[in-house]
Amino acid sequence: MTTQLHASTIDPRDPDVRSDAERLASRLDGGSPVEAALRSMLNDVAGGSRVVILRVEDEVTPSQAAELLGVTRQYVDRLCEDEVLPFRRLPESRHRRIRVQDVVDVATERERRRTGGDAIRAALGA
């Protein structure tokens, strides 16, 4: 299977882009997971949100990983050093690349821990 990199930018501030996204979202009426994901993405664009689509096998820089996680780049560096976030170094370089799937896994674990902590606090406060 060949992976083809396609990168394009659409401006959700553009009224035509928002209108197109809303029109396309309304045409997706099935209940499949793919249609639900596309409909959600299109509704976000129609509402003016920026959306990023990445393949799980794609790689990002530590700065991009930090942006995806909503943390600082220094925190991502610490996650890499502590072997929480796997990475690879570019040949003959100190620069790191991190698989998107690994970033998603860390984000999922962080969310799981946060919601668990919230549940414990709620139970103790009740």
Rank of each mutant, 00 (worst) to 15 (best):
T3Q: 13
L68K: 05
V103P: 04
V100S: 03
C80T: 08
R18S: 04
V84Q: 13
V100I: 05
G117R: 15
G31P: 03
T9I: 12
E67R: 07
R112I: 02
G48M: 10
L5M: 08
A107G: 14
V84R: 15
P91Y: 04
G48Y: 06
G125A: 12
S40K: 14
E92W: 08
L124K: 09
T108Y: 09
R39Y: 08
R99D: 04
A25D: 11
R39G: 03
R94W: 04
A46V: 04
A25Q: 13
D118W: 12
I98K: 00
L5C: 09
E22M: 02
A36K: 13
L5E: 11
R94M: 06
E57H: 14
G125I: 05
A66V: 06
V52F: 11
V103I: 07
D11R: 00
L38W: 02
S49Q: 15
T61Q: 04
L54H: 02
L42N: 12
V71M: 14
H95S: 15
E92R: 13
R55G: 04
L24R: 14
P12K: 07
A7K: 06
S8K: 03
D14R: 03
V103K: 01
L90P: 00
A123T: 11
P15W: 00
R121E: 14
S40I: 04
V52K: 09
V60H: 05
D14V: 02
L79Y: 06
T108L: 10
P15H: 07
V52W: 12
D14T: 00
L54N: 00
V100R: 00
R121F: 02
V45I: 15
T61R: 07
T61E: 10
E67Y: 04
H6T: 08
R23M: 10
R94E: 13
A119I: 04
P33A: 10
V71I: 15
D11C: 00
E92G: 13
R113Q: 15
E92L: 11
